[in-house]
């Protein structure tokens, strides 16, 4: 098993190569999926793919209008839709087997460590969301959105809620503000990372080669799909909720 994280170096910056490759693959998949979905747009009777896309849009729309004033939330729809798609597709990567069959090892393609990234020993691909960098990136974007939208809608008054109901509470509000992205990032990361670990652990069940793990693996992968969907939903709902907290006028 490739235990070492494959790194790309750019100057003295380092990047997790497998994470980035998978992130871009996921983005490409989302792009292809969405572009197929909007290929034959019609306001009349929608096709199958358009139906799926409209279902997703409606789903997120409902989510937004449940949490806040829909007119306020409308500019966010594009972001939230992309977010839920990205997290869901990323989570699904961890249930896709590594289908490169050691191709890169056989051809010794050293470019960007591709042979290391798609090493033969990796039975399953690594989800981008099983890297804390990706989940933290999304969580940071969420909290940046929360604060900037809060300031945009309420002006300086936004900071007023930090001293509610008493200036002493500022420390609690500050912890709350910091905890939001941390919990977002670690929840998603923990769920998906643990899922991948368990996939590897199940292959290690004692017996002939990987055979004893086949049945539990099927069950676990099915459950992983469920977890992936739930986590994508949770991440989006929480982002919406945090933003709605920030932009909705306070009762006082």
């Amino acid at each position: 098993m490739a235990d070492e994280t494959v790194l790309w170096h750019l100057g003295n910056m380092t990047f997790h190569a497998r994470t980035l490759i998978n992130t871009w693959l996921v983005m490409a998949a989302i792009l292809i999926f969405c572009l197929i979905g909007v290929r034959n747009l019609t306001s009349g009777k929608p096709g199958k793919m358009q139906n799926v896309m409209e279902w997703i849009v409606d789903f997120v729309k409902t989510l937004v209008s449940d949490n806040m004033n829909y007119e306020q939330g409308r500019p966010l729809l594009g972001y939230l839709l992309t977010l839920i798609m990205f997290v869901f597709f990323s989570n699904m990567v961890s249930v896709i087997p590594n289908l490169t069959f050691g191709l890169f090892e056989n051809f010794h393609i050293d470019f960007a460590h591709l042979n290391e990234i798609f090493a033969r020993q990796e039975y399953f691909s690594a989800a981008p969301t099983s890297d804390i960098n990706v989940t933290m990136a999304l969580a940071l974007l969420t909290i940046i959105l929360v604060v900037s939208l809060g300031i945009k809608t309420k002006g300086a008054h936004y900071f007023h809620h930090f001293v509610e109901p008493n200036p002493v509470f500022a420390i609690i509000h500050l912890i709350d503000l910091l905890a939001k992205p941390l919990t977002l990032a670690f929840r998603l990361f923990g769920n998906i990372f643990a899922g991948e670990i368990l996939v590897k652990v199940i292959w290690m069940l004692p017996g002939i080669s990987v055979l004893p793990g086949v049945l539990p693996q099927v069950v676990w992968l099915a459950f992983s799909i469920f977890i992936g969907a739930i986590q994508a939903y949770v991440f989006t709902v929480l982002t919406t909720a945090y933003i709605s907290q920030a932009v909705t006028p306070s009762e006082h």
Partner: peptide, 9 residues
Amino acid sequence: QFDWTLVAT
């Protein structure tokens, strides 16, 4: 491990 992957992402 946090590194520039975060920014790239």
